[in-house]
Design a protein around this nucleic acid. Sequence first.
DNA 1: CTCTGTGCAAAACTTTTGCACACTG
DNA 2: CAGTGTGCAAAAGTTTTGCACAGAG
Lengths: 139, 139
Amino acid sequence: MTKAHPTLTERCRQEGLRLTGPRRVILQVLEASDDHPDVEELHRRVEAIEPGVNIATIYRTVNTLAEHGLIERHSFADGRMRFEIVPETHHDHFINVETGEVVEFRSDEIERIQEEIARQYGFDIVSHTLDIYVRPRKG
Amino acid sequence: MTKAHPTLTERCRQEGLRLTGPRRVILQVLEASDDHPDVEELHRRVEAIEPGVNIATIYRTVNTLAEHGLIERHSFADGRMRFEIVPETHHDHFINVETGEVVEFRSDEIERIQEEIARQYGFDIVSHTLDIYVRPRKG
DNA sequence: CTCTGTGCAAAACTTTTGCACACTG
DNA sequence: CAGTGTGCAAAAGTTTTGCACAGAG
């Protein structure tokens, strides 16, 4: 009987964050996103559901959510911040340099080696980002 | 008799880039930097050697150098672009979240596993970035 | 001499913030 | 009703660009 992953809304309640109209829509959009939208894209998706939400609200909300550990920030190679819900199990990203498409993957082996090396250097890992820029293999 | 790593200046000549006064100083600063300065920091270091170089020139130069593959761009967690000379052998980064200090490391094992996974997904690796955010280990 | 690079200033773009008001808990 | 969140507009921070001129090859 695995308990389902708690929704963002539930996690906000746990964190004592207020569930306002705009915030509910932003959470809904984040839940529905399986890609890694930037703030402008989130704003577009929110506006499509409920017009009138200011982009400053999106910025403030993603910052709040990230501070509470509910979403993750990414940079990739374009200048903007991109976001995704904190996944149940950590994963890394392939970025197709020809299309910009992002593919998620996970390697327990890489995770393990990272821990090992960090320990050798006397560090505890807080988090990490592995972005692999790729091109479809020809042949 | 291993040939020494060619200097940035030499590599610029190879690429047909012009060696102007400001550019020479920027190259000198990059050569002398074993950290990962951002544009503002580069500008400061350049100004210390030869005042009067405009920051727009720094931006244009690092972009040119990066396009020609002579330096690498990094993002880390602060909003700004940071740079370093393309190293002889690729390495990854620990970023101490308490001090901002960056430590380089390399793992052939991680490199190998990345290749392997990329192949499984049908990708050729163009480049990659592994940033591990760490804290000094207590105990 | 041609063409790349530069300084300067303005613009573009992304993100943050002050303020007055609205609304959640 | 206290305190958090929001809209709006302005500001701040970073990076790019148009233009006329300087200098490298």
